[in-house]
Amino acid sequence: MLQLSPEEWTAVALSIRVAGWATLLSLPLGIATALLLARRRFWGRELLNGLVHLPLILPPVVTGYMLLLLFGRRGPIGSLLEETFGIVLAFRWTGAVLACAIMAFPLMVRAIRLAVEAVDPKLEQAAGTLGANRLWTFATITLPLILPGVIAGAILAFAKAMGEFGATITFVSSIPGETQTIPSAIYALIQVPGGESGALRLTAVSIAVAMAALLASEAVARLVARRIADR
């Protein structure tokens, strides 16, 4: 009963791979976006903010369909990617990475942005008077100070990516071994007679992963916060 079947293991492993890549690849962009939104006043700032948050509010199936339109093999970006780099996203696990990254992006940016807003820009000014240029100031002052937020954002994004369903299944379908992540597998299992026990096992895995991610995020954030605490 508790033993996962090989197919179920495949779905779990794929989910972790997809969520891991989605988190890793979107992290630099997430940090940059959070810095931009928290620190800079520029034309179109509200627009960018809205765009980042859109996947949180839109029905996931709409996001997935838009991805299909844009990144499908006949879509404007999809065809360009295929012609110039030979990269195909539609119906591939790499497409699942893209869908998960976009769906998890708002959560990541929100967590990091809160951390950036808590950093006193006066400390960065002080670093400047000590001879540090912007890049060094970011590396030695800003980044260490926002690290708890970055870690929390990454773990949150990872958990969200693990559970992403609507956009993924719309964009890359549910191909076992290629794009069938845990949620798609659960959905497939409950469609067939006798699949309930498999669905239940994967559900347990989902809950465990989500819970572990939340606890880890809290614990790491607390640890880092204590290290840099004002004591």
């Binding site: 006066k122 000014q125 002080a126 670093a127 400047g128 008077t129 000590l130 240029n133 840099i228 605490a229």
Partner: peptide, 20 residues
């Protein structure tokens, strides 16, 4: 000249030590 190239030290009212 940007601040980091001025070689001008600055002691702020509130210290502004790096907490980490």
């Amino acid at each position: 000249v940007p601040p980091h190239r001025r070689r001008i030290g600055y002691v702020f009212q509130e210290g502004r030590l790096f907490p980490h």
